[in-house]
Amino acid sequence: MPPDLNLRISPRTVQRETVDKLRLAIFSGLFQPGSRLIESQLCTQLGISRPSLREALRSLEAERLIEIVPNRGPSIPSLTWEVATAIYEVRELLEVEAAGRCASRISPEQLRELDKSLSAFEEAASSNDSLAQVMTAADFYSIILANCGNPILEEVHRGLVARISFFRGRSMSLDGRAQSSLAEMKEIYESIAAGDEKAARKASKNHLLKAKAAAKMSMDSAT
């Protein structure tokens, strides 16, 4: 082995992996809204120290995926329809505009990447992998946002991705929703591929309205 090759894993790598795993656990519904997170149990499950865990929890708190209350510890925020409505309203403002702008700006290479992300979502929908559905749908929209020609719009949306994925997971939990989402996302893709800004905006808005309705049904059934 070359003497200058350092294989030590840095604390930052441990923290990043911890954040990723906890984020996925939240998206998948392993931790239910309103439930407390017991630090000692998480340390054992993740095989990490308490300081590393607390650094990860602070990152998740910044993403609004958990809340840390003094003398009570971390917990998953309770879902309210008011919060969900606000998220979907902002999504409509950002994603509908991004889809329209993307239709007139995306390069052939990036269009192929968008097609690949759609295929990945289709595979996740076919295999009924709810977590993969959430992540591949996020990838699909991240490509659209990255090609909308407005870095501020993309930046604002990126700050909401974690909470969008949280509610997307609830929406996708309904029977048949993943296949419906696939059809809606294909319509968005086809409009963008055709360079039709108006159709892309319409398809994106239609997708969001149906996703919002599905999320409402999922949340109502959980109460």
Rank of each mutant, 00 (worst) to 15 (best):
I68P: 07
L93V: 08
S75C: 09
R72T: 06
R64K: 08
W81P: 01
L79Y: 10
E97W: 11
I87N: 02
E95Q: 13
Y88L: 01
A86R: 12
R64F: 09
S75I: 04
Y88H: 12
V96N: 07
I66K: 04
P77T: 05
I87W: 02
V90M: 14
G100L: 13
E67K: 06
I68Q: 13
G100P: 09
V90L: 15
S78Y: 07
R72Q: 12
L94D: 06
G73P: 03
C102R: 00
A86G: 05
A84E: 06
Y88A: 03
E95L: 13
I76E: 01
E89L: 07
A99Y: 13
V69I: 15
G73H: 05
L94C: 03
V69C: 06
T80S: 15
I66T: 02
E95D: 15
Y88W: 14
I87P: 01
E67V: 09
L79V: 02
N71H: 09
N71A: 13
E89A: 12
R101V: 02
L65G: 08
I66L: 11
R101I: 02
T80Q: 09
L93M: 12
P74G: 04
S78L: 12
E97T: 14
T85D: 15
Y88T: 03
L94F: 08
P77Q: 03
E89S: 07
E92F: 02
T80V: 01
R91H: 05
P74K: 10
A86N: 06
G100Y: 15
I66H: 03
V69F: 08
A98S: 08
S75Y: 13
V83I: 10
R64I: 04
A103I: 04
R72I: 08
A98C: 03
S78E: 14
G73R: 04
V69H: 10
P77I: 04
I66R: 06
E89P: 01
I76G: 03
S104R: 11
E67G: 04
P77R: 01
V69A: 08
L94P: 03
E95R: 04
V83S: 00
A103F: 10
R64N: 10
E97V: 06
S78K: 06
S75H: 13
I76W: 00
V90G: 03
A86L: 14
R105A: 08
G100A: 11
V83E: 00
L93A: 09
V90A: 14
I68E: 11
R64E: 10
P77N: 06
E95K: 02
L79Q: 04
R105V: 06
W81D: 11
R101S: 10
R91M: 14
Y88I: 00
V83C: 00
L93K: 02
R91V: 05
P74L: 12
